[in-house]
Design a protein around this nucleic acid. Structure first.
Lengths: 136, 136
DNA sequence: TACCTACCTACTTAGTCGGTGGGTAAATAT
DNA sequence: ATATTTACCCACCGACTAAGTAGGTAGGTA
């Protein structure tokens, strides 16, 4: 599997925030709408706030909101943050264990090509692209 | 990660068999050349023999060989067999747990598109494509 | 003051990854 | 006939991860 629940949930949270306007949205509401455990969501969000993808305010009337326009988020950025790594094989992970066979490896170029392809795919999609079609 | 050692090792075995001619090649030799545990390889091979990708004969002088020409194997076929599934997200697995949100899911079409893209990528590469360049 | 919300830490439970060990069955060489 | 080589089968294992739960604290608002 390429993308676990962490990345998928993160995307759905971002889309939900985008679809519910500019105010602060409590995660409780998002969790309910998206049918995702609130407690689990709370574990996924920190990496997004730390990287200034979203910002949260405490207290009544608080919640989270996006820091930019939905069109300015790429799916690739969000997935790389929440999944940690989008590498298709372990040889291409951020911290790969040295293989020593890379130079002679028949398959390595293929993995590199796939890696590029997937990153380009995800980078070419924005949160705005995933939002509800207003004609619906 | 998209492809685990199972799929990657299976590919390297197939390439090794392709590069070492038409006779029966003992797995011991392949394991040594590829620096992969023989015992682990023995766990990966059955699914390939059962699906007539390779055939093995017992005893001295035995081993495995390909059943077709290297150009007639697609990487996709081999990976789908050894990995069991190439689905990028759990919603697209062979036996997905029913989600109920698929119809309204903003991200589902993206996963479908990625799934098609990856399968087409792997189906477009043959074992022959991965073999040693004879000019080297 | 009461309430709400973000935010933090620890724990759990099931499953997978990447093997190892110990054999048996079949075919060949001597 | 026997030894050797090879495929083939099955049980087990330790480490790790995925996907949550549970139980709080800190900060902000009505």
């Amino acid at each position: 599997m390429v993308v676990s629940t962490r990345g998928r949930y993160a995307l759905r949270v971002m889309i939900d925030l985008a679809e519910h306007g500019g105010g602060y949205i409590p995660m409780k509401d998002v969790a309910e709408r998206q049918e995702i455990s609130l407690k689990y969501l709370e574990k996924i969000l920190p990496v997004l706030t730390k990287n200034h993808m979203i910002e949260g305010v405490h207290g009544k009337g608080g919640g989270y909101r996006l820091t930019r326009s939905p069109a300015d988020y790429s799916v690739g950025d969000i997935l790389r943050l929440t999944e940690g790594d989008l590498a298709p094989v372990s040889c291409l992970e951020c911290d790969p264990k040295p293989c020593g066979r890379t130079a002679e490896c028949r398959t390595f170029p293929m993995w590199q090509k796939l890696d590029r392809m997937m990153n380009e795919f995800f980078d070419g999609i924005s949160i705005a692209d995933l939002m509800r079609d207003p004609d619906e």
